[in-house]
Design a protein around this nucleic acid. Structure first.
Length: 876
RNA sequence: GGGCGGUUAGCUCAGCUGGGAGAGCACCGGCCUUACAAGCCGGGGGUCACAAGUUCGAUCCUUGUACCGCCCACCA
């Protein structure tokens, strides 16, 4: 191969797709449930089927891909189970919007037609996110791709629903829930996003019927007074004691309201008297039920005042608020207004202010499920990483409330409950019933509500593997090895999977949960379309390549809660990709085309080969350790540092003289190729494309993913000092060159002063290394100690570089004085430490030993500097 | 109201169970050296937010303060 054949810059777009296609065609991501290898499995957090890849997905899936590829290289049978989520409300909203553009409402076309439309949309756009994952390099087993509304998964949903219902863990109840007036559906508590906002606290005078006195009441939502059915005060509140049992009159409406006593009422807040609106406030609801107050619903499902609102009927809720306030003002009922900060709930899908509302809904009784889910985390059957999320998990689990699972939308798993029109019995069974199980009537109508999307995703780890059938896949790969996810769905998804897994599989869904940060923009803002700060992963991939992008994400993965992504960082790793390419290019282009690349001959290794082998071994071990403990940034950093700053900066430079020497070429290239090949394997989980691309230039038939991660068993631990000395000397010379602007081209003469035998052997009596230094650094040794010299002092040796006319002795002295200062600082620090009795007694031996060495070193350098300075002073 | 994070070089962040602080980018100086200018070589730059405590020793542990951020919660 000739240099000209290979460009100096690599263009990822030219090979990424081709390589991915080959992987897919070969089926190398396919997991074999009959394999004798130990299993390693991950289920993908299913993205919304109609969504597109965002930065969060990119990070999440990159980390999963690193794990999957790494464990495959480690001899595991890996399964990465892919799929998508039907995302009930979100998807329905998208399709409704599309219809709205044509001025059609879903009600006009009806349920069946609408669902058809959604399926159509799913078919159209569903492939997008999958293709994007492929662009990223995801090694999913696509043959197994699942969708939450697949037949199989729907069966699992039904099985779970029926079972929980039969056990009394699912029930139907008229209860106060969160209602989105725009989506027209109930929401679970989790689906409500609270936001602190400044509102107004209105103080309204009510009359007491029996005594005629005024009773002042504070509220932030005056419009709900249309649904008031009582007033509550604290039983210990002396101001109101005498009113308990009496009646208040609701202004404007004139309704009579019983005054009740309840400890819930905070005497300190507002006026200490609380209006009770059981149908529109969760607390009022509880108090109302306790005291038998009427539940008066004054709002329809779109947030408009209904027939119970008298003359306000038909007004939108916030309009009604204004109207009522002005009416109260007119009647002199409004005593004062105060600014008040309180949190307001919004729909997590459309951001509309939610309205608490009483309605008939389905619930899961979660306490019994939560107990087991708490236990398995407590005893580390499920290990949450990083640990501090455990606390958050427990906090939520201990205070968990029943889960409202019914949604009044059409897109989703329709609840398999059939009401008997005759006797009212609810029939719930695996098969659609043809008659009522109680009265045998055939007049049955199915529940129109569908299930919360998260109900089906809670089953994901086992429903995707074929449950409720007992499949080989389940047997081999369940429980999964690890779940990788962001903390934003810890409650939505992770907690519920643990509950469902322990309940239905009698085993945890995953052994470990790795929780990573969320990706933000450069300013730390959440990326969102409305803010316009979204960086599209695909454009990053187009611009820099998937490998650079992935490596960036891995390197940033340690960042606490937010990952701030900047293009500069990606660019840096794009350069790294190019570095890998050029190092490979250099080795490959020097390789004769008929060259036989076999295992290197260990007996022919030069000292620098042993040195780099040793560094490779250390690096491989470190990368492995770090991936196993999810320290992706450390792993990435190790291989980066090794490849660039050890392999490229030093080793390749050190072997160039051999490469250009026909007699030594073979041994050098063999050794270099060995390191390159193993580096590619170590890099492959992070940068699958470029590594495979390079790999294929020497071996077009095999794939890197089928190689074995290098755990090298040789040890050249004790044979590294020679090369390290060479490196130290080169560094010294370069330092002098830098200080005096001596061009790299010009030859430098140096006198090295040392009495260290190792150093003498490495560079004084060693022809090979002398040649290396001469070629690499344009350095010639001289035996004469020349007085007018630039000096560089290291532990073990002093180097003098005489430079006629360039060196200003006084400047040189000043420079050395500066170095002396820092050496002195160390010398004093460690000296003081080593005199400290307490320290000597209590500090560990290794530390003392280390500090002693540091002390000796600083002492040596200090002495050498002093001698040099004295000598220079003597000259001038 | 409860809980959880953060505060380290100009910027973005590492620092893995306490032994005197690192990376990338940026900056300054020198190099088109026959793998790579998306590169090579050298260099400057930090009272690790503040205060107290524990310790022979604190960026790291404890407590408190200040500012920033997130999550949960039924205070009208």
């Amino acid at each position: 191969m000739h240099q000209n054949d290979l460009p100096t810059r690599i263009t990822p777009s030219e090979y990424e797709k081709k390589i991915y296609n080959e992987w897919e065609a070969k089926g190398i991501f396919h997991a074999d449930e009959n394999s004798p290898k130990p299993p390693y499995s991950i289920v993908i957090p299913p993205p919304n089927v109609t969504g597109s890849l965002h930065m969060g997905h990119a990070l999440n899936n990159t980390l999963q891909d690193i794990l999957i590829r790494f464990y495959k290289l480690n001899g595991y049978e890996t399964l990465w189970m892919p799929g998508t989520d039907h995302a009930g409300i979100a998807t329905q909203n998208v399709v409704e919007k599309q219809l709205a553009e044509k001025n059609i409402s879903r009600h006009e076309i009806g349920r069946e037609k609408f669902i058809e439309k959604v399926w159509q949309w799913k078919e159209e756009s569903g492939g997008q996110i999958i293709n994007q994952l492929k662009r990223l390099g995801a090694s999913c087993d696509w043959e197994r791709e699942r969708f939450t509304m697949d037949e199989g998964l729907s069966l699992a949903v039904r099985k779970v629903f029926v079972t929980l219902y039969k056990e009394g863990l699912i029930y139907r109840s008229n209860y106060i829930i969160n209602w989105c007036p725009r989506c027209h559906t109930a929401l679970s508590d989790l689906e409500v996003e609270h936001e602190e906002k400044e509102g107004t606290l209105y103080y309204i005078n009510y009359d007491v019927k029996e005594t005629g006195e005024k009773l002042l009441i504070a509220t932030t939502r005056p419009e709900t007074m249309l649904g008031d059915s009582g007033v509550a005060v604290n039983p210990d509140d002396k101001r109101y004691n005498h009113l308990i049992g009496k009646t208040a009159i609701l202004p404007i409406v004139g309704r009579e309201l019983p005054i009740v006593a309840d400890e819930y009422v905070d005497m300190e807040f507002g006026t200490g008297a609380l209006k009770i609106t059981p149908a529109h406030d969760p607390n009022d609801f509880d108090i109302g039920r306790k005291h038998g107050l009427k539940e008066i619903n004054m709002m329809d499902d779109s947030g408009y005042v209904n027939e119970n609102g008298g003359k306000f009927q038909g007004m939108e809720r916030f309009e009604a608020r204004k109207a009522i306030v002005s009416e109260l003002e007119k009647e002199n009922r409004l005593v004062k207004k105060e600014k008040h900060i309180h949190s307001i709930g919004h729909c997590y899908r459309c951001k509309t202010v939610v309205e608490p509302r009483i309605s008939m809904q389905w619930f899961v009784k979660v306490k019994p499920l939560a107990e087991k889910a708490i236990e398995v985390v407590k005893n580390n059957e499920v290990n949450i990483i990083p640990e501090n999320w455990k606390k958050t998990y427990f906090e939520w689990m201990y205070n968990i409330k029943d889960w409202c699972i019914s949604r009044q939308i059409w897109w989703g798993h329709r609840i398999p409950a059939f009401y008997c029109d005759k006797c009212g019995h609810i029939n719930v069974a695996m098969e659609d019933p043809s008659q009522c199980e109680k009265c045998s009537s055939t007049e049955l109508s199915q529940e129109t509500d569908v299930l919360d999307t998260w109900f089906s995703s809670a089953l994901w780890p086992f429903s995707t593997m074929g449950w409720p059938k007992r499949t080989k896949t389940l047997e081999k790969f369940y429980p999964t090895s690890c779940l990788v996810t962001g903390f934003d769905i810890l409650f939505f998804w992770v907690a519920r999977m643990i509950m469902m897994g322990t309940k239905f599989m009698n085993d945890v869904p995953f052994r470990e949960v790795y929780i990573h940060a969320l990706v933000r923009d450069e300013e730390g803002q959440k990326m969102s379309k409305s803010k316009g700060n979204v960086i599209d992963p695909l454009t990053v991939i187009d611009e820099y390549g998937a490998d650079a992008f992935r490596f960036t994400l891995a390197a940033l993965a340690a960042q606490g809660r937010d990952i701030k992504l900047s293009k500069e960082r990606v660019e840096g790793y794009r350069n790294f990709v190019n570095k890998i390419w050029n190092a490979s290019r250099f080795i490959l282009m020097n390789m004769p085309s008929n060259y036989n690349i076999g295992e290197p001959d260990f007996s022919k290794l030069e000292t620098e080969d042993k040195w780099i082998y040793h560094q490779l071994k250390i690096t491989a071990d470190a990368v492995s350790t770090h991936i196993k403990s999810y320290d992706f940034n450390e792993a990435a950093g190790e291989i980066y540092k090794f490849f660039w700053h050890t392999f490229c900066d030093w080793y390749i430079e050190l072997i160039k003289d051999r490469i250009f020497d026909e007699n030594k070429k073979e041994s050098a290239l063999k050794a270099a190729f060995f390191v390159l090949k193993n580096s590619l394997i170590i890099l492959h989980p992070f940068m699958p494309f470029v590594t495979e691309y390079i790999h294929k230039m020497t071996d077009s038939d095999s794939n890197l993913l089928n190689m074995t991660f290098p755990y090298l068993d040789f040890s050249f631990d004790n044979e590294n000092s020679e090369i390290e000395t060479v490196i130290a000397i080169i560094s010294s010379i370069r330092n002098i060159r830098g200080e005096y602007n001596i061009p790299p081209k010009s030859m430098v003469k140096a006198y090295i002063k040392t009495d260290d035998k190792k150093i003498i052997n490495a560079v004084k009596n060693n022809e090979k290394n002398i040649k290396k230094l001469s070629r690499l650094e344009k350095l010639e040794f001289t035996d004469k100690e020349i007085e007018k010299s630039a000096t560089n002092i290291s532990a073990g040796f002093v180097i003098y570089v005489p430079i006629e006319g360039i060196v200003d002795i006084n400047e040189e002295i000043a420079r050395l004085e500066k170095e002396r200062k820092s050496a002195l600082k160390d010398y004093e620090l460690y000296g003081k430490k080593l005199k400290n009795e307490n320290y000597l007694q209590k500090a560990p031996k290794e530390i003392i030993e280390k500090d002693k060495q540091k002390f000796e070193k600083s002492k040596e350098i200090l002495e050498k500097i002093d001698i040099t300075i004295d000598r220079l002073k003597a000259i001038c």
